[in-house]
Nucleic acid binder design. Structure first.
Length: 464
RNA sequence: GGCGGCUUAGCCAAGUGGUAAGGCCGAGGUCUGCAAAACCUCUAUACGGCGGUUCAAAUCCGCCAGCCGCCUCCA
């Protein structure tokens, strides 16, 4: 198995990936809080973890991927009050929306998708354990984690508690807490009518950081190989996860911390307060999941990415050229075995260096060029099989290709196009090029590209 | 204030010591009834600035400038 190096935020350097129990590989990534439609930042994160998992699986690692959904927190409750709905319903509505988006982006289902509300009892016993070993304390109906009890607090951020405290000059500190950096494990409700769950400390709800620790413990029972998330979560979220989990289990929480870069809009981090918030559904109005994925993959996952119309158009045109090289490729034909060749070797080598997807894409373009230049049908088919497989590893959706999609809707489209093309052929034979071209143009407007081939034959495909 | 990151052609973007991947846009050409796609050529003598180390620096070190992120909910 090829050695993979990953940049570990914990040590701030690239390290060789050594799973605890190879080829098993446990990975947990932070999912969304479902209080609104997901935005393109969630798309970036999801696509990142998706292609990383796909790549690891292509190397025969037995990956178990968990991605949580935060379905209870203040923002969800506020939204519920606003819409006069139960918080659970708000969460379900937007979790469903998130799943629609993931489907549109061809992001694979994680193996586990726990929600906070499913894990309330686990979180309560987790807190009890932390109180028992003096890592947490109760004040009224709240429970806080005591950062002073954890000697490595600040390791992920790279600053000791004494330095971290200095950032607190300008924000309001909850005076109930023993230390400004202490964070809530359990937040008691202010009013008994408020939404909450029963606990030994009264009615309340879990603190956000807790769920990831408790779920990991519940699902894996063992330490994680990889923990991923957006780089905005490094502090305090992931710092706090480490503190809780390691205080509870007395062993290392995760060996490798991977963080994806932020999506910028107009050069600024995307945020509602900046007024530059773009949902995945908005983005998909003007482009396809493949184009969005290409756009993301064209930058290294750790780098920030500036979202622009130009960038999306460039991505659309780029992925279109790659998939075009597969427009006459059919997976039903007798495919050459998925054997190693110079392209797959280069691809693996690029991807094994901290998942260098931009370099991997360059190899897909090299394949694309060579497919077009290849005259020998047998060799061409091999190249296409390689390209097809590598596209799948990166998670591109090739079902738009009429030759590789045997779905009923594609068959129907195919029939309609065949009928229109008979009509077009008649027009052309009568030298009525205006009518004939009109048919082609109309199809083009729906992203169906028609290519005329010799002797009144044709080829079609759906463009990005 | 503390910590981290970024600055490569018109645009996007790889590249951590050996002489700069790839994509997109634009222009011209081949092909075509016209297109589309593909191919060829050009755009491309591109590494923020100034010093230093070295036979050799986009890559290492120092200083400076600009931009961004985290320190508060955030993918």
């Amino acid at each position: 198995m090829k050695e993979i190096t990953v940049y570990n935020s914990l040590t701030r350097k690239k390290e060789i990936l050594k799973p605890i129990n190879s080829p098993d590989l446990n990975i947990y990534t932070c999912g969304p809080t479902v209080y609104d439609h997901s935005h393109i930042g969630h798309a970036r994160a999801s696509i990142t973890w998706d292609f990383i998992v796909r790549f690891l699986r292509s190397l025969n690692y037995k990956v178990i991927w968990t991605r949580n959904i935060t379905d209870i927190d203040d923002k969800i409750i506020n939204k519920a009050n606003e819409l006069n709905l139960h918080p659970d319903k708000v969460a379900r509505i937007y979790a469903h929306s998130f799943h629609e988006d993931m489907h549109a982006l061809n992001v694979d289902w994680p193996d586990f998708e726990p929600t906070a509300t499913q894990h309330i009892p686990n979180m309560i016993s987790f807190i009890e354990g932390l109180i028992k070993n003096s890592s947490a304390y109760q004040i009224e109906s709240d429970v806080y984690f005591s950062v002073s009890s954890f000697k490595n607090y600040g390791q992920l951020k790279g600053q000791p508690i004494s330095e971290l405290e200095k950032g607190f000059g300008r924000i309001e500190v909850n005076i109930k807490k023993k230390h400004p950096l202490d964070f809530a494990l359990w937040k008691g409700v202010k009013d008994s009518n408020d939404h909450g769950f029963e606990s030994p400390w009264g009615k309340g709800r879990p603190g956000w950081h807790l769920e990831c620790s408790a779920m990991n413990y519940a699902i894996y029972k063992t330490n994680l190989d990889i923990h991923g998330g957006g780089d905005d979560l490094i502090f305090p979220h992931h710092e706090n996860e480490i503190a809780q989990s390691e205080s509870f289990t007395k062993s290392k929480f995760a060996n490798y911390w991977l963080h994806n870069g932020m999506i910028l809009v107009n050069g600024k981090k995307m945020a509602k307060s900046e007024g530059n918030f773009i949902t995945i559904k908005d983005a998909l109005q003007n482009t396809t999941g493949n184009a969005l994925r290409f756009f993301m993959l064209n930058s290294h996952y750790r780098m920030p990415v500036n979202y622009t119309e130009e960038g999306i158009t460039a991505a659309k045109n780029g992925i279109d050229r790659i998939t075009e090289a597969l427009s006459d490729y059919t997976t039903n034909s007798i495919n050459p075995p998925n054997e190693e060749n110079e392209y797959t070797k280069e691809f693996k080598s690029a991807m094994s260096d901290d998942f260098n997807s931009p370099q991997a894409l360059a190899i897909l373009f090299k394949l694309t060029d060579n497919i077009h230049k290849e005259n020998e049908e047998k060799i061409k088919l091999k190249l296409q099989a390689t390209l097809y497989n590598l596209c799948c590893v990166l998670g591109f959706d090739l079902s738009l290709n009429p030759k590789t999609n045997t779905g009923s809707s594609t068959k129907l489209i195919s029939k309609i196009i065949d009928k229109l093309m008979i009509w077009r052929k008649e027009c052309k034979l009568k030298k009525d090029f205006i009518s004939g071209d009109k048919i082609r143009d109309i199809l083009n407007e729906t992203n169906i590209e028609i290519k005329d081939l010799p002797e009144n034959t044709y080829k079609w495909r759906i463009k990005s």
